[in-house]
């Protein structure tokens, strides 16, 4: 992740630089975690088959560990996709409109809507987490609090908000003509 040094209007540019630094730091930290989680899911699951079919004694509780890893794998992965701005989306309107001001305005509007929804997602997942903390539900075998897993949604939503704020500011600068389109 190269630090973006293109010129923009002062304050916004400072925020963008800050977010880019954050992005650099966070993605560097997240990637190895995601790799560890991904391989854990695969090998633990395969080991489960081995113990059941070959050794003949199923391992209890393996599934809940794998699922815990999986939730974090999903949400950290979704965060990485936000960082790369590669969330699944359709781009036919921009294709129709070309790359004029109209297209840039639509893009800004779409990003603003996304940002708004990301805030909603954070609020909803905060509610889930606070409920989880309140009720202290645990997994069947090890009694690991489900909130450990549910917190991944909250963390993911935070990443969405940070990266969408960046995208919003960038789109704004593009519309204002202070920045070239990505």
């Amino acid at each position: 992740m190269a630090i973006d040094t293109r010129p923009g209007s002062g304050a916004i540019q400072r925020v963008l630089t800050l977010i880019d630094r954050f992005d650099h730091w966070v993605t560097t930290a997240i990637r190895p975690i995601v790799v560890a989680l991904g391989l854990l899911i695969a090998f633990a699951f395969a080991a489960g088959v081995f113990f059941r079919s070959v050794v003949g004694s199923p391992v209890f509780g393996l599934e809940e560990l794998v699922l815990l890893a999986a939730m974090w794998f999903y949400l950290l992965g979704a965060g990485l996709a936000s960082s790369e701005r590669s969330h699944l989306s359709a781009d036919f309107l921009p294709m129709l409109l070309g790359d004029g001001k109209a297209a840039q305005a639509v893009q800004l509007f779409a990003t603003a809507l996304s940002l708004m929804m990301a805030v909603f997602i954070l609020v909803w997942s905060l509610d889930l987490v606070s409920w989880g903390l309140d009720k202290r539900q645990g997994t069947p075998v090890f009694g690991i609090p489900w909130v450990v897993s549910q917190a991944s949604l909250m963390f993911g939503a935070c990443l969405f908000i940070i990266y969408l704020s960046r995208d919003f500011l960038r789109d704004l600068l593009v519309l204002l003509g202070a920045r070239e389109a990505d």
Partner: peptide, 17 residues
């Protein structure tokens, strides 16, 4: 998978999955 179900079956000689 919750206690005491798998533990019971194991004690009875079965493999609980």
């Amino acid at each position: 998978p919750t206690f005491p179900n798998p533990q019971t079956l194991k004690a009875m000689g079965y493999q609980a999955v």
